[in-house]
Simulated assay, not measured.
Amino acid sequence: MESKKFSPEEPDWDKFLEQLNSDSQLEGQFSPVESTQFNELKRLVAETADALSVYDKLDCEGSWNTCMDKARERNLVEEVASNRFWSVKLFMRYAAAVIFLTLTIGGYFLIKTKFGQVVEDSVIAGGIEPGGSKARLTLSNGDTMVLDADEKGIRIDDKGISYESGGAVSSFSQEVTYATLSVPRAGQYQLVLPDGSKVWLNSESELTYPVSFKGTLRVVHLKGEGFFDVQHMVDRPFVVKSKGQDIEVLGTAFNVSAYENDGAVTTTLVRGRVQIGATGVDERFLLKPGMQALVRNGHVHVKTGVNVEEYTAWKDGVIVLEKQNIREVLKQIERWYDVEFVVGKTDLPMETMSGEVSNKLPIDVLLKGIEGQLNIKFEQNGRRFMIKN
């Protein structure tokens, strides 16, 4: 039987582990520091070997640099000299991927659980699948259409609507002046506006916009969460109106989270400049990249040095947590998996969580990771989960 090719492009984990165990004599070539790192990596690989069967559930394309960065953050790997034996290089690279896997599944905490049990139980709970491309488009003339789930987004101009892949959705009559794109729970969708600006809508969100921008302003209305990459037009500012705030930009990229049941509206700037203010208040605040504005009860609070990835990675299929409490984490899971968590009389843990998780991960794997970290239990009843200590 022909063996599988052992390469960085197509990792053969069984082959890698076999090679690792047979190359222990290479330890003699390491410095004391490298030897410590090698042994620590061996321990991690052995501890997480059973978890490799969930590797295919994750979208790891293009993640090698992230793998190595995360391994370096834990002082487990460093650059390998070019004259090292080739298998040592491969070991460092593949071990970094294993570490990334443990970091990715549940954000730094599944490494503390028994992976054999996690993998064994990692079936989709009661048919609860991760979210995907879902949306409904409503036109000002009353026409409503459910958009193709196999498509990621639509493009709109004064002639009509088409999918980004090129397929037609609908043509316009003279009576259509605006449209509303609505994304349900467990959904996301993309949109290219008439001016070429791009918008990503998250779960439980909607955007109302004109089919053709006229006048001196480009105005859209947002409910929920959206990421905007706005085309630069010096003489036609782009305005996003959401719950309790207005944002004015010329050309920039930023994320807005304006859910009705959240206490504040959060605007996080990735690129460019934006002016933001509370509705009905004259004072305006200028945001620069890495800054965030929180609008609550007519007041604006500006933060600097924000990790923008935490607030924007959702559009790329990743949930990033940075010192978030369990309530904030569960709120994201509710929207993406279309489930409900019931706390009851249980006292929720005070610990915060940090890390990254693919939004394609089965909910069972995700919840078991949380159970292992926070010492709580989830009891399922349909799409409802009761939280118990």
Rank of each mutant, 00 (worst) to 15 (best):
Gly107Glu: 01
Glu204His: 11
Thr180Lys: 10
Pro184Lys: 13
Lys134Phe: 02
Asn202Glu: 03
Val119Tyr: 05
Gly127Lys: 08
Thr113Val: 13
Glu129Pro: 06
Arg155Val: 14
Gly167Trp: 15
Val119Leu: 03
Asn141Trp: 00
Leu207Thr: 05
Asp158Trp: 07
Leu191Val: 13
Gly131Ser: 05
Gly116Val: 02
Lys198Tyr: 10
Lys112His: 13
Tyr163Lys: 13
Tyr189His: 08
Ser170Ala: 15
Gly160Ser: 02
Leu137Gly: 02
Tyr163Phe: 14
Pro130Cys: 05
Asp121Lys: 11
Gly127Ile: 04
Val211Trp: 00
Asp195Tyr: 01
Tyr178Trp: 11
Asn202Val: 03
Ala179Trp: 02
Val176Lys: 10
Ser205Ala: 03
Thr113His: 15
Val192Ile: 15
Phe213Trp: 04
Phe172Gln: 15
Glu175Gly: 04
Pro184Phe: 06
Gly160Thr: 01
Lys214Phe: 00
Lys112Arg: 14
Met145Val: 14
Asn141Glu: 15
Tyr163Ile: 02
Glu164Gln: 14
Glu204Leu: 08
Tyr189Pro: 04
Gly127Glu: 07
Tyr189Cys: 10
Asp195Met: 02
Arg185Asp: 01
Pro210Phe: 00
Ile154Thr: 05
Val146Tyr: 13
Asp150Leu: 13
Gln174Val: 11
Thr113Phe: 11
Val169Asp: 08
Ala179Val: 09
Lys112Glu: 11
Ser205Arg: 00
Ser205Glu: 00
Lys114Trp: 05
Ala135Met: 11
Val146Ser: 14
Pro210Arg: 05
Gly215Glu: 02
Gln174Asp: 12
Ser165Val: 03
Gly160His: 08
Ile111Thr: 15
Glu164Cys: 08
Ser165Leu: 01
Pro210Met: 04
Gly106Asn: 04
Lys112Leu: 09
Gly196Glu: 06
Gly126Ser: 15
Asp121Trp: 00
Gly187Ser: 02
Val169Asn: 09
Gly127Pro: 07
Ala149Leu: 07
Ile124Arg: 08
Gly107Asn: 03
Leu193Val: 10
Val118Asp: 12
Lys159Tyr: 15
Gly142Pro: 12
Gly131Arg: 03
Lys112Thr: 10
Ser212Arg: 03
Ile111Pro: 08
Asp148Tyr: 07
Ile124Ser: 12
Lys152Cys: 04
Gly127Met: 12
Trp200Met: 07
Leu110Gln: 05
Gln117Ser: 09
Arg155Ser: 10
Ser205Tyr: 09
Tyr189Met: 09
Tyr209His: 04
Pro210Gln: 09
Gly131Cys: 07
Leu139Glu: 12
Glu151Asp: 12
Ser205Leu: 02
Leu201Trp: 07
Ile156Phe: 10
Gln174Asn: 15
Gly187Trp: 03
Asp195Arg: 06
Gly196Tyr: 07
Phe172Gly: 10
Asp143Glu: 12
Tyr163Gly: 09
Ser197Ala: 06
Leu207Lys: 00
Lys152Phe: 05
Gly142Ala: 10
Pro194Val: 03
Ala186Asp: 01
Ser182Gly: 07
Leu193His: 14
Ile161Met: 15
Gly196Cys: 00
Tyr209Gly: 09
Lys134Trp: 01
Ser197Val: 02
Gln190Tyr: 14
Ser122Ile: 07
Val211Lys: 02
Ala149Asp: 07
Ile105Ser: 03
Phe109Glu: 14
Phe109Asp: 06
Leu191Cys: 08
Phe115Gly: 12
